[in-house]
Design a protein around this nucleic acid. Structure first.
Lengths: 138, 138
DNA sequence: CCAGGAAGCTCTAGTCTCTAGAGCTATGAA
DNA sequence: TTCATAGCTCTAGAGACTAGAGCTTCCTGG
């Protein structure tokens, strides 16, 4: 059995975050030692690694909760899991697109400014003040 | 003089958000009508448009606060404004990179899963359970 | 001139995913 | 036995809003 600190070290998830996941129902309430400290099994370790991995991939807690519940019905069809992942992929792609548009606009603004003159004529400030100086919507 | 609703319509910033910006010190506390309602001038409109534009570009409130304060010293050098924008650009690029790595990994996971089989053999679930199935760190 | 509804006001709490801190207790090695 | 480290619970804070309650002011039509 692992203490919460051990579990933290092995998964890279911080201690308060583990407690938070328990509170959110992602992890079952852990067994307790005589002194009321949490004790974790190998299964708990795997479950937490699963959660961590999902978070690293940017899935939100409710998606992970759903995936966990799906994973506990091995003979159900996997269409739902596929949909969660696909939806998330689509969301990631949208974010990338949006950020790329931002990147272009910022690039353009910054490239007009060499930092060597006064605020009065600073392109950064002027661009923010006047939307007409922008190339695209954002 | 504009009411808060007028200001909202003209800038596309929602009414509660305008009050929030006032509370955060981005907008000066507005003049009030006899009946204690906020009244805005053309300057306020421009200031809010500036803020909105900064937010649209993804700058956070403290960066915008700093830019506003810089913009009020027209003869200072603009190096600081340049740095804020450049830093932000760098942050945006980092986010893009990270999201692209996610995109690739998710793409790979999703492409292994056609939704047509059972959870037991679902690649989405298996990939989450087993980090070794991943191509890259994330 | 007044009714009624839209728009305004303040204040509080909720969103999401943690993170930090206070104040206390348990564990384990010297 | 001592004492540091690690654990416990509970509350609050972060950022950038958003929603709702309960109240007041404004404006228009009749």
């Amino acid at each position: 059995m692992l203490s919460i600190g051990d579990l933290s070290k092995r998964t890279g998830v911080k201690v308060p975050t583990i407690r938070y996941y328990e509170q959110m129902g992602l992890l079952a309430a852990a067994e307790r030692s005589e002194g009321n400290q949490r004790r974790y099994s190998r299964q708990d370790l795997e479950r937490l690694a699963f959660i961590r991995h999902g978070r690293d991939l940017g899935l939100d807690i409710s998606a992970i909760r759903e995936l966990i519940s799906l994973s506990q019905h091995p003979d159900h069809p996997c269409a739902d899991a596929d949909r969660i992942a696909s939806d998330h992929l689509a969301a990631v792609r949208e974010k990338i697109d949006r950020l790329k548009r931002l990147e272009q606009e910022l690039e353009r603004i910054v490239s007009h400014c060499d930092g060597g003159h006064s605020i009065e004529e600073c392109y950064v400030i002027r661009a923010l003040s006047d939307h007409n100086l922008c190339d695209s919507e954002h």
